[in-house]
């Protein structure tokens, strides 16, 4: 997004000032409203479509497969596809690696079927359009798709070490997965101020971006800094890191509550 110098300095002055004025009047911690659709892909075990108010949109599918967990220990795999970006682009790879790292920390217990076999779930993310750094939107999409996921119900024995048999499933009954994946927040640092969910024009003047993850009621690693633009990026005061983490700690429960609601 290219802005004029006058626009940029107007935005920067407003955002970095003591009143922390955002161009759309939001409070520093306020998100843009999102709209969520779930369960619209019958051939997937779970699906979601999340749309932000600026038209950024992300579609997530969850599909499962039965694997021998002694051979394949990684039971969750995230794949990211961003329209208009190559699969090996920096943006796609960095987002995919962050999500995979993060999701690896989720408790896998619910995926275990028998002593030998587990479900492996494939989370495919398709970003149809994005106007600002899309990781927050993606994490919402994954969150909704995974919470909407229903898996086939096991009818065979849990203990299959003695008797050699493949897991068998009920023809109709499904069991909700009931797993909660981590949320990821983007923060923009402008001057001495920190903002949650920066819009495109806010990102354009941010001195730095911060990606903070939230899982099971606490801020978790990885924590990353990102450049939200090419022109304004500077070093930042480590104290802002604390401010950012505090902001997330303070408001993430409210966001989780809204997502669950």
């Amino acid at each position: 997004m290219s802005l004029s110098i006058a626009e940029e300095s107007f935005l920067y002055d407003s955002l970095s000032g003591p009143q922390r004025l955002r161009p759309d009047g939001r409070l520093p911690h306020q998100f843009r409203p999102v709209e969520v659709f779930t369960d619209f892909l019958p051939s997937s075990d779970g699906s979601s479509r999340v749309i932000a108010s600026d038209g950024s949109e992300c579609i997530v599918s969850v599909k499962c497969k039965v694997v021998d967990h002694t051979v394949e220990p990684d039971l969750i795999q995230v794949d990211v596809d961003i329209a208009g970006e190559r699969d090996d682009s920096l943006l796609v790879e960095s987002i995919a690696s962050l999500l995979n790292k993060l999701i690896g920390t989720v408790d896998h217990a619910r995926l275990q079927l028998t002593k030998k076999y587990s479900f492996k779930i494939f989370i495919d993310v398709l970003v149809l359009s994005s106007f600002s750094y899309p990781i927050s939107l993606i994490s919402f999409g994954v969150y909704f798709a995974v919470s909407a996921t229903q898996l086939p119900k096991l009818v065979s024995n849990f203990d299959d070490l003695e008797v050699e048999e493949l897991p068998m499933f009920d023809d109709y009954d499904l069991v909700p997965l009931e797993m909660r994946t981590p949320l990821v927040f983007t923060l923009a640092l402008v001057g001495k101020n920190v903002f949650l969910d920066p819009a495109a024009n806010e990102s354009a003047v941010a001195n730095n971006g911060l990606v903070v993850s939230w899982s099971a009621g606490t801020v978790v690693a990885p924590l990353r800094t990102i450049a939200l633009n090419n022109t304004h990026v500077t070093g930042f005061d480590p104290e802002l890191l604390q401010v950012g983490i505090k902001l997330v700690e303070q408001h993430a429960p409210g966001i989780v509550h809204a997502l669950e609601g």
Partner: peptide, 18 residues
């Protein structure tokens, strides 16, 4: 309405959001 974020949930198919 949460002060932090508003989430509108819809089930199923695509809808004309425009």
């Amino acid at each position: 309405m949460s002060e932090v974020i508003t989430v509108v949930k819809r089930k199923g198919v695509f809808e004309n959001d425009a």
